[in-house]
């Protein structure tokens, strides 16, 4: 089988919002990645001590996988056509059929089984999104938003990556936009989306969600002095891996959201949103410093960081995010 559907590859900061952007553009709705991310209300902070991944608690800087897809679908009034499969063979046949019909298709995969990822980047994260835009014999043609170039993946590896079992198992999940309404009226959805995110971040009733979640994690870090230093290193290292590596995370998501606020400021003629964008940027920079402190703690730097410093930095971030999102919520 040889089919190559028209597709212009663009790198993105985050896999799911990047794939959704590309799919919508292909369907005739130009939208930026930050807009897709912000409108779908995908920014958050969560720290779940009891949900362990690779032996470490889950820390996430965005909503769970698939929230961009379903979120943007609801807002546009154009739900994505989605499917999961019990039988891997069937899942691959469906993908082929969509390609043959001229579609480009978003699929969920496990990073570990994608051969074009460098070995050091391959971990068992099962909610990585990419675009399949064609097939050339045994190879699928892949637009992976993480990379600047397009990639190729043999059928056997792609099947394995799509049908891996376990946490966030993709079950062959594939998706593409349904018919788009003539008038999407994106602009009027900006304010409610900002309001929802601000409420989640500033007023969550749950202690491990939003700014409260950040303060909660800061307190847990403060208690690390009582633990074995090697354990403390692995615990802290994992927070940054979740931030920087799995989907470019933490600071990356803060900058993505800041970009969304800036674009919204122009669309709505609201200068105060541009100012909010600058404040979000400053918060993102604090997250980067937090990451730097942890790296210095792990690597016994010439100027080593202490657990107290790290916890203090995160407490500061928690206060900043609390104040920022409370104010943003009042605007919205």
């Amino acid at each position: 089988m040889r089919v190559i559907n028209p597709y212009t590859h663009r790198q993105a900061a985050h896999c799911e919002s990047g794939v959704v952007r590309a799919l919508l553009e292909h369907a005739g709705l130009p939208i930026s990645e930050p807009m897709a991310f912000g409108l779908s209300r995908s920014l958050v902070f969560v720290h779940l001590p009891l949900l362990k991944i690779g032996g470490q608690p889950l820390t996430s800087y965005r909503m769970p996988p698939r929230s961009v897809i379903t979120g943007i679908g609801k807002i546009l009034g154009a739900r994505f056509a989605t499917a999961t499969f019990r039988d891997p063979r069937q899942g691959m046949d469906h993908l082929d059929a969509h390609l043959a019909q001229g579609r480009i298709v978003g699929v969920q995969t496990s990073v570990f089984w994608l051969p074009y990822f460098p070995d050091g980047m391959r971990f068992h994260f099962n909610a990585h999104n990419l675009i399949v835009y064609g097939r050339d014999g045994d190879d699928y043609l892949i637009g992976d938003p993480v990379f600047a170039e397009t990639s190729r993946c043999d059928a056997r590896s792609l099947m394995k990556a799509r049908f891996i079992k376990g946490m966030l198992a993709p079950k062959g999940f594939l998706y593409f936009p349904g018919p788009l309404p003539k008038e999407t009226g994106l602009i009027r959805h900006i304010r409610p989306s900002i309001k929802a995110t601000a409420r989640m971040m500033a007023k969550s009733p749950l202690p491990f969600v939003g700014a409260k979640g950040i303060a909660f994690l800061a307190r847990r870090i403060g208690r690390l002095t009582r633990r074995d230093p090697e354990q403390a290193r692995l615990f802290l290292g994992n927070i940054i891996r979740m931030q920087e590596e799995i989907g470019t995370g933490g600071a990356g998501f803060r900058f993505l959201y800041a970009s969304f606020l800036q674009e919204s400021a122009a669309l709505l003629h609201e200068p105060c949103l541009r100012e909010a964008s600058m404040r979000m940027t400053a918060i993102g920079d604090e997250w980067r410093e937090f990451a730097l402190l942890i790296a210095r703690f792990i690597k016994n730097h010439r100027v080593p960081a202490t657990v107290e410093e790290i916890a203090d930095k995160l407490t500061t971030i928690a206060r900043m995010e609390q104040a920022f999102f409370a104010e943003l919520g009042r605007w919205a």
Partner: peptide
């Protein structure tokens, strides 16, 4: 960094006009 094995990722950052843009 060696982990990227010669690849690059992309992040949103501010250009000289203070506008957000995607930077490798």
């Amino acid at each position: 960094i060696p982990v990227f094995a010669g690849h690059s990722k992309a992040v949103y950052a501010l250009d000289s006009h203070g506008d957000y843009t995607l930077v490798p």
